[in-house]
Design a protein around this nucleic acid. Sequence first.
DNA 1: TATTGTTATACTCTATAACTATA
DNA 2: TATAGTTATAGAGTATAACAATA
Lengths: 146, 146
Amino acid sequence: MITKAGQEAWRTMFDLFLAGDLPERVGRVSKAVDLAPGLLKALVYLSLHDDARMRDLADQWSCDASYITTVIDGLEERGLAKREPHPIDRRVKTVVLTAKGITVKERAFELLYEPPKAFAALNSAEQRELRHLLLKLADAQLAAAS
Amino acid sequence: MITKAGQEAWRTMFDLFLAGDLPERVGRVSKAVDLAPGLLKALVYLSLHDDARMRDLADQWSCDASYITTVIDGLEERGLAKREPHPIDRRVKTVVLTAKGITVKERAFELLYEPPKAFAALNSAEQRELRHLLLKLADAQLAAAS
DNA sequence: TATTGTTATACTCTATAACTATA
DNA sequence: TATAGTTATAGAGTATAACAATA
């Protein structure tokens, strides 16, 4: 059951991201690794789902397949990813990161995962407690998705 | 000081949003209130900063002033906001929501602030604790911004 | 016949440059 | 001279439609 406190917790998290850090941060990282936001997003997706089918990307993002063609073209032109034939179904292509793609991805995650300075306002015990609660949420979300 | 636990907490929060709910949710709300994402974002901004100067919007979003003209045109065409002259500086225009704009905004926030089902995985005490920690973060972030 | 991905094309979103009015 | 906002225009980003290859 979700209580009023839970609702307010979500609302606060939402504001932290939307009013706060996220939009500016993504823009900053996008510039730092010299990739348009769409390409950065694709790189992040591929690093979490290596060897993904192109169709999966379109489904996941609820966008048209032709746009995925454009995005993967962009990553290939920059030498960050490459298409591979599917071992069984010859209509399908999968996408894997190249060594260069992995390097850029790692740099991107380094910047994205760096906590906002505001986290220093919590003491050690509080930071541990926050991690604990959020991991519980993430587990529940993962379980619901599958 | 930010500990390893704090870092992991941030990372988890980030994944909750980016891998998880947020992108799809904004798209859903955007369709529900029949506003393109850019216009929805402007509506949200104006509801938090009523009577904002157009220049403020451009600064806040780090975008060109001409784009703000386009966005506010869009809101005005839909009867959701209107430009007002600045009482002192006649170069400046401010933007306020209309009654209709306020109605749409309220519907949008209702949908955006609805917690993901995963929150039910936390018991009452945990939801209160999470709220407490997040409010502390939000306060610190607000203090840092000003 | 249905599905995957590509091409060609068009539409939407956002930026640049030149301009008007005001400070 | 510098700043706020607009207009006209150009550039990204994303979708639609028609198509080739494969299932």
